[in-house]
Design a protein around this nucleic acid. Sequence first.
DNA 1: CCCCATTTGTGCGTATGTATC
DNA 2: AGATACATACGCACAAATGGG
Lengths: 138, 138
Amino acid sequence: MSIDPRSHTPVYVQLADLLRQRIEAGELSPGSLLPSEARLTQEYGIGREAVRMAVALLRSEGLVRTQRGHGSYVREIAERTKIELAAGNSAIARMPTGAERKHLGLDEGVPVLEIRDAKGRTEVLPGDEVELTRPTSD
Amino acid sequence: MSIDPRSHTPVYVQLADLLRQRIEAGELSPGSLLPSEARLTQEYGIGREAVRMAVALLRSEGLVRTQRGHGSYVREIAERTKIELAAGNSAIARMPTGAERKHLGLDEGVPVLEIRDAKGRTEVLPGDEVELTRPTSD
DNA sequence: CCCCATTTGTGCGTATGTATC
DNA sequence: AGATACATACGCACAAATGGG
């Protein structure tokens, strides 16, 4: 598989698609380092700008985490803790504010679950670590 | 408030923080146009790359929507439809795949809710338009 | 401790395409 | 038609963080 500069699909999107495939195929396993920007520019014969935008796109999707002076890692899939949505409560999914992301230690591209109880009190949970359940009444 | 190029925090993160503050403070209201890239580079004395990455970061957070050839707008807050989480079902929040985003017509930086029933069938809902509820058993 | 190689962050110049007014 | 503004893409250069010797 290769990249076509003359395609209507932007080069950086094509690269992101390729990398996403390699991640989902397990060829780039969770915790492993992506090839460096320099390597990707060479291997695919494209510019650094396109490479950086491709990685930024994967970051925004929560697939990779970038560490300056080191590289970009494939994010590890967190275990999801089952949380029961209590009767009378509701939940919404949204992206965290900057403060929330810092406070919860969230990577880029990770949503939060905001739980609201009947009294209007809210609780914000890391979206990649939680599975919301409602048990059968049996 | 200004930007410090010598800070440990990347310039583009600092700018994103400043713009986020202005958005959350209502100074940049929903539907309004952000200053252009050129204006931001001048006003903050930073490079184009930093400006573009800051705006991309806000996009990934679902705060702004960029319209090509026009500018970047502060996203309007969508009405949320209440959806009941049925008994025996569960839900997780995550970022959509590219295909899902296209199919659902989602802006960048908008998570999805994936509902799973007892038989393992899943349904994907736009995270910015849904509020998950569990009524009181009354 | 310093030096060095690697990697990402930042700034800037340039160019082309496309959408809007 | 023209001006403006963003999107994409390439190039180069230097700064800053990281880790190894």
